[in-house]
Design a protein around this nucleic acid. Structure first.
Lengths: 205, 205
DNA sequence: CTTGTTTTGGAATGATCGTTCCAATAACTT
DNA sequence: AAGTTATTGGAACGATCATTCCAAAACAAG
């Protein structure tokens, strides 16, 4: 029944995702989406219930194609502080690669643009936060197994701290394309975490 | 020449500020502003060039009536780490006082909502960032005078780190009204700063 | 070719928005 | 009081938006 569309469904959503990411949900019109995706108005409305449904598909695809490749390293079984550092490096590299168009994180941008009323959207954003928190907690817990300096409550506090710090990093990465400052921030964050956990200072790039 | 308006100019801007703060620039219509400020459409357009000019007046007033009372303690001459802690406490108290309507920081919300094209607005937002950075740098420098553990470059890095962390805190404070988590974050941040600077752990409330 | 099904491009709809304009009203001055 | 100025409420305008609708075109299968 589902027949091949001119641009595949993934390609369609990817185009839409790119637009939403760059300009934000409210600043993308259906006309923009028609032009950018190359799919007609009629087809868009037959494939998706409306603009919001299409956006939700983009949020889901963002998890697959952006969050997982970047954050997966932290979520793997034996990950520790070094993997958190890898994630931050990846984040910095992405930023340095596109110094002009600084888009930040789609989830955090959206969080600042919607109201709590749009609860379907909000649900997805919360899930993203929980995903990151869980991954960070696991990595810090694993790291702590080696040195045993912190108890569970302290690990939890550090995980939360790291999560919020990363949110600040994303926020800062929008507008300010001073990648040296961002790098410095990541180094400071990692070095603070390391010293608190009793890890010898890491030798980053 | 300038005669007294029915609601004083400050009261007018305060009403508009409240709306912009709660809903964001793009989600406030001129109709909303007329209803909320109690000033007619005609008068609004004779007092301000348009919606954006009114918003700029609100951003300026936000600095006077919100940022200065909260952040001034860090900007005073002899301020150190303790005053940074006071600022964070103030921030947490503000958050706990309005657990329902969590508005975050007007400047950071706006930063996530506008595009770099709106450069007049962007200028004001950048100035806010510079103000906070300068105040934090000064306070950390002052604190470091007592212990002499860090050099200038490290102070600069720590100031930047603190600034971005505070941005993350503001971002987190929107939506999540889990004030215990926010408090925990502030405590972790302060304790990390203190240990890095060689300060005995502070006894917060 | 001839059906039957998708897809297209664009017109039409109804809503909201920022801004302008202006006659009616209120407030102040002399 | 009358005369002058400031303010009001709302109509009107032009623009943009999400959504709906549909005749024409493209395509697939028999």
């Amino acid at each position: 029944m589902a027949r091949a569309k001119s641009p595949s469904r993934h390609a369609l959503v990817d185009s839409a995702l790119k637009l939403f990411w760059k300009r934000g949900y409210h600043r993308v019109s259906m006309g923009d989406l028609v032009r950018e995706t190359g799919v007609s108005r009629g087809s868009l409305y037959s494939d998706f219930a409306g603009k919001e449904a299409l956006f939700h598909a983009c949020l889901d695809r963002y998890q697959e194609t952006v969050v997982t490749p970047a954050f997966g390293v932290v979520e793997t079984k034996g990950a520790g502080l070094a993997e958190v550092g890898q994630y931050l490096d990846n984040l910095l590299a992405r930023n340095a690669a596109h110094p002009d168009a600084n888009t930040g994180c789609l989830v955090l941008n959206t969080l600042a643009q919607i109201t709590p009323q749009e609860s379907d959207t909000m649900t997805r954003l919360s899930a993203h936060g929980r995903r990151l928190h869980k991954g960070l907690h696991q990595a810090l817990w694993q790291e702590n197994q080696k040195h045993q300096k912190l108890d569970e409550a302290e690990i939890e506090a550090l995980a939360r701290f790291t999560l919020i710090s990363i949110q600040g990093l994303w926020a800062q990465s929008r507008g300010s394309s001073d990648s040296a400052a961002l790098r410095q921030y990541c180094e400071t964050l990692l070095s603070l975490l390391a010293s608190r956990m009793g890890v010898e200072p890491l030798h980053g790039t």
